[in-house]
Design a protein around this nucleic acid. Sequence first.
DNA 1: ACGTAAGTGGAAATGATTTTCACATCAAGC
DNA 2: GCTTGATGTGAAAATCATTTCCACTTACGT
Lengths: 153, 153
Amino acid sequence: MADNRPRATVHDMALIGRATQQRAMVLGALVVAEGFISAQALHKRLVADGSPVGLSTVYRTLTALAEAGRADVFRDTNGERLFRHRPGPDHRHYLVCTQCGLSLPVESGPVEKWADRIARTSGFADVRHSVELSGVCPDCGRKADQGQTSRSS
Amino acid sequence: MADNRPRATVHDMALIGRATQQRAMVLGALVVAEGFISAQALHKRLVADGSPVGLSTVYRTLTALAEAGRADVFRDTNGERLFRHRPGPDHRHYLVCTQCGLSLPVESGPVEKWADRIARTSGFADVRHSVELSGVCPDCGRKADQGQTSRSS
DNA sequence: ACGTAAGTGGAAATGATTTTCACATCAAGC
DNA sequence: GCTTGATGTGAAAATCATTTCCACTTACGT
């Protein structure tokens, strides 16, 4: 059977300059993570896995990837930036689990149309939109329920 | 003619505890600001206007207002939190000028419906959405154009 | 007016991110 | 294979928004 896990392309590395071991490790960890993850968390994971990459390098690599359009970024409620490897170049929106970071691409046609209409009728120039959907995924919801139940009378 | 400028209501103060001079000044400045403004900027403005409120108090008041639902909050791209006095209790979305902070409420029916549908069909619990539209307002666009024109050619 | 819980402010603490800079290393060119 | 200059790295320091601490003040019910 074929290996269907997402993987980094050489293209990803080429886009952000020189191909170093560290960048490969960061990119690899980001791809493996699937879903949004913070630079700090990714760094911890790398160190734990015996890939001691410097924190600065993690930040530099993630920022570069985001600038090159190979990663999606958004701020969580605590102001932390979460990154996610973007397989393709398409503009997408995700429903992200606030507990585990699992992210689900959602059908976003209606919002795009809506945003375009606003852009056209507002008189504003260079209109951009950022749409974030967050919630608790079924798995985490189940866990939370169990926790609640055992704690309450 | 009637004075149509937005103003703080006694209600705003009552919602967040004791009515102090400092809170009145912060609230007043927030109302006068119209559009989104950061805690830091609001503090500078207050100090400049001869209302020396402590930075901590500005943060505390804005946070309290947001929690009481009397202010909208969102994170700008730099991770700064921007606040805006909310006249009514309705859930709204705004088109915010990235240059001057001017904000325009936009008709958001379609997004709400879209978000609700996602919430219902995804299996996720407690789904929230944050939608941010940003651009350059006509005024700032004009200024930018002039700047560009005189510099180029 | 009094008492006291709630509020204030300046300084210190926090926490994510960025910068600095001495050192390592990649990719040519010889 | 070896020098070389640009590019990348990492540990520590710097930055910046925000929060917390804590001694001092103040609003407000009695």
